[in-house]
Write a protein that binds this DNA or RNA. Structure first.
Length: 480
RNA sequence: CGGGAAGUAGCGCAGCUUGGUUAGCGCGCAGCGUUCGGGACGCUGAGGUCGCGGGUUCGAAUCCCGCCUUCCCGACCA
């Protein structure tokens, strides 16, 4: 925050954390809440989340899931039913011990996730194979008392979507986790323009209580990995803990196979860290609250016609489905507005002044490009959807190039150390916990995932020369 | 929990070492005027329990004791 009162933001190269915090606050995405680690999501940031929500919700529904809502409070005893689960979450729980003016007989946990409540309800709702699959999603807030909060990336309370499904067979449940990961990947790539790596978590990084955890890993601009979404195959672990059984076609009782999967407001942090530069945010058009901002320029007698033209221009863009804002705030100079909208990451800015008006043109500046161009007014409108599509693609290209340039195939210790300092290290690994530990101590890097698209490969472990596990390369990186 | 920094106007800070008239500065805010194509300027004005509690003193933002909170770096983390 050292430079918060100066005109620019701290450069990424100087202090990435400071850059990130300044951008989040000054772009008015969010503000800090009164309780440690909490965050007020401001309208500009919330709109980004809404756009993610809208696209994701449509995909969730299109694949047969229904939205529902389960309560915020969980009796402490319920959480204890799944041993690994409670162990995994115990340190980060917020617990209500008093309510209604007295001490509660049984403390209530504020949900860190809803598997246990869902488990109880599913057990009640499922009795036959004919009740399966049961495909539920909820949009909710959850609370995790993390030791090291960061705006959007790890807040004490956050918003997310959690899908919960129950199936008759393991195959079907595993297929479900892939479906969920699939729409997360689409949202990341097609909306957020984040080129994620899809893969499976190693045992040490798995969700508490899961048999298998699938993940999307992004690489942000300081070379650290960000887990963008996860999808868990829970096997029959929760079904056993909550007695979730069904009668199969032969009349025999079986445990359900369940899944859970989630994507959170962390994705907004991913967008910021993947695309932003030293001037501030750069938003992918599909997630930008305003895809185009129009800055009218002029004063006195010049102003009314300019404003009228700006509004007409905006109306033309809106008719094409473009999200546009006319910045007609009279007290601010054009230069101030240019800088502000650049900080806030608006993809396209249109400047419209008396000179433009006289020439029948507008001046266009794109957030990714240097310089400006002039276009005939009508063309500028007609071309805008295409321009935004191109911008979206360019942003994804740029991020993909960055990720690829920061992914290193390495086979020795020195290479591992060097690679994890700046990005992904693609390595063969023995899979031993002790070896992971040693790598973590030396480099702060952890196994992020075993990518699905890695070719089969065997060999010696990058760190200990033991035989490689997983049958392919693993991605290690320092992670958020 | 360990290390570091900080709580003074909406925001960013100075003042504290060496206690002393009315607690300053920049930005922002309000009014007026001049400005407006890359972060405009002038004048006027509003805005303060100096984090909280106690102590020392004739007198505390300043010295002493206790407490609280936030931020940053670690450890932790799906």
């Amino acid at each position: 925050m050292a430079k918060a009162n100066e005109r620019g933001v701290t450069p990424q190269s100087e202090d990435f954390s400071a850059w990130y915090n300044e951008v989040v606050l000054r772009a008015e995405l969010a503000d800090r809440g009164p309780v440690r680690g909490t965050m007020v999501i401001r309208p500009y940031g919330y709109r980004i989340w809404e756009l993610i929500q809208g696209a994701l919700d449509a995909r969730i529904k299109a694949t047969g899931h229904e939205n529902a809502y389960v309560p915020l409070f969980i009796p402490e005893s319920h959480l204890r039913r799944e041993a690994e689960h409670v162990e995994g979450f115990a340190p980060e729980l917020a617990v209500v011990t008093h309510a209604g003016g007295e001490k509660l007989e049984e403390p209530l946990v504020v949900r860190p996730t809803s598997e246990t409540v869902i488990g109880e309800m599913f057990a009640r709702w499922i009795s036959s194979y004919r009740d399966l699959p049961l495909l539920i999603n909820q949009w909710a807030n959850v609370v995790r008392w993390e030791l090291r909060p960061r705006l959007f990336l790890r807040t004490t309370e956050f918003l997310w979507q959690e899908g919960h499904t129950a199936h008759a067979t393991e195959e079907e449940a595993r297929a479900e986790t892939a479906i969920a990961l699939g729409f997360y990947e689409e949202v990341a790539r097609d909306l957020a323009a984040i080129p994620v790596v899809a893969g499976e978590k190693t045992a040490s990084e798995r969700f508490a209580g899961a048999v298998s955890t699938l993940t999307l890993e992004a690489l942000v601009r300081d070379g650290r990995a960000l887990q963008a979404a996860t999808s868990h195959f829970l096997g029959t672990n929760f079904a056993r803990a909550f007695d979730m059984t069904f009668a199969n076609a032969e009349g025999a009782l079986e445990y359900c196979n369940t899944t859970s999967w989630g994507l959170s407001t962390r994705m907004v942090g991913g967008v910021i860290m993947t695309h932003g530069d030293d001037r501030g945010l750069i938003l992918p058009p599909r997630l930008a609250p305003y895809q185009v901002v129009v800055v009218p320029i002029g004063r006195d007698a010049d102003l009314p016609p300019v404003l009228e033209a700006a509004r007409e221009l905006a109306a033309g863009l809106i008719a094409l489905g473009v999200r546009v804002r006319v910045d007609d705030r009279p007290q601010l100079s054009p230069g101030f507005k240019f800088n502000e909208w650049e900080l806030r990451g608006v993809p396209v800015r249109i400047e419209l002044g008396p000179r433009d008006l006289a020439a029948g043109v507008v001046t266009i500046a794109e957030r990714l490009a240097e310089g400006k161009e002039q276009r005939p007014l009508a063309d500028a409108v007609a071309e805008m959807p295409e321009r935004l599509t191109a911008f979206q693609a360019a942003l994804l290209d740029r991020a993909t190039r960055f990720r690829d340039e920061h992914t290193f195939r390495v086979d020795d210790w020195e290479g591992l150390v060097a690679a994890t300092a700046v990005g992904f290290a693609s390595v063969l690994h023995c899979g031993q916990l002790s070896c992971e530990q040693r790598i973590k101590e030396a480099t702060k890097a952890t196994p992020r995932c075993v990518p699905f698209d890695a070719p089969d490969e065997q060999g010696d472990c990058v760190a200990c020369d033991g035989p490689s596990a997983y049958g392919r390369r693993v991605l290690f990186a320092r992670a958020y």
